[in-house]
Simulated scan of single mutants.
Amino acid sequence: MASDTLSRRPPTLRRIRTDSRLATAAKEIAFLLAAALLYTLVRGLTSDRVDAAFRHAEDVIAFEKTLGINVETDLQGLVLDHQWAIDAANGFYIYGYWPVFVLTLAWLITRRPAAYPFYRNALLASGAFSLVIFAFYPLSPPRFLPWHGFVDTISLEVPTYRDMSSSRLVNEYAAMPSLHFGWILLLGIAWVALSRILVLRIIGAVMPLLMFAAIVLTGNHYVVDAIVGGGVVVAGIGVAVLIERHKRRRAVEAAIDDARQAADDGDGSGSAIPAQRTPNLTRVR
């Protein structure tokens, strides 16, 4: 009898939260699948623009020389004679991206669900900006230009990874912006802002610096790619801020409507909230 009573009890708060997080995870899978499909379509748009990608690469190199930041080959020259440095750069480029990406999103969903939508929106917005750049400005990565002195360290040391990343589902002429750097910058910001553990906050602050070194030392990106990658992430954060402000404004307006309705239901006069006070309330952030 007691067991029947227990089985008929309403769901606990923990179960409700678990179900909500599972629903959120399902939606995020859908988002990622849609993003992957869109990325594939953009890859199709740029695959027949190889000549433009190499012309743009020459333009980027010339632009960096003008600014005095054409330092990629000089930096590579510092590590090519040190196997441990090459291994470290290759390893962080490979394992410091998707694993960190997935684990951070999982942590946000499960441990910081209130903050997750902000970073999700920033991620999607920066990705959308990047897709536009990929479509209209195909760019060959440095590793495709060995005559400039660039070395593809991953092809030399980890050819299996390069073989996998050379499939038809990967846009090899989308060097700008560097989402390897940009998205790790965004995730690092999340670590610094939301983690309660000092060591993790320090790691979050260092991760973008390590990824910047990795993308340059492996011959996968130019310095300008990282700058633009950081720029699209800042723009994505701006979009996320606007979305949050819009959500808060809608919540305040809904609260005002509910209060007015309650007042109308209570005395029928609708005068519980004076009309002249409403503008002050709607300015709440």
Rank of each mutant, 00 (worst) to 15 (best):
D51H: 12
L22Q: 13
R250P: 08
A213I: 02
A115T: 10
L13R: 10
H246P: 00
V170F: 03
A174Y: 01
R283T: 07
E244W: 10
D257I: 14
G266S: 14
L281T: 11
A190H: 03
Q261S: 11
T18I: 14
I202K: 10
S166V: 03
R249C: 09
V284T: 13
Y97D: 00
A26R: 04
W191L: 14
H221W: 01
L13M: 06
L108F: 03
F144N: 14
L139Q: 15
R17I: 05
D258T: 12
S165N: 13
R21M: 15
R21I: 07
N90V: 01
L198E: 12
D87E: 10
L186N: 04
T40I: 03
A175M: 01
V132C: 13
L242M: 14
I237N: 03
I16H: 11
Y97C: 03
I237D: 01
P208V: 01
T5Q: 09
I273C: 12
S140T: 09
R285I: 08
R162M: 03
L78S: 05
T218D: 01
E58T: 09
G44R: 06
P142T: 00
A275P: 07
E58F: 05
F129R: 05
D19T: 12
I16G: 05
R260W: 10
L123W: 02
I237M: 05
Y173M: 09
D257Q: 15
R111P: 07
A115V: 08
I243N: 04
G44F: 04
L210F: 02
L38W: 15
Y116M: 13
L187A: 06
V42K: 02
T46C: 06
L217M: 07
F134M: 13
L123Q: 03
W191D: 09
I16A: 11
A125C: 15
L217D: 02
A85I: 01
F101C: 05
V192T: 08
G77D: 00
R196M: 08
D152G: 02
T153V: 00
A35M: 13
D225S: 03
Y93H: 15
A25M: 09
L187E: 05
V224R: 01
I133R: 09
T282P: 04
N90S: 04
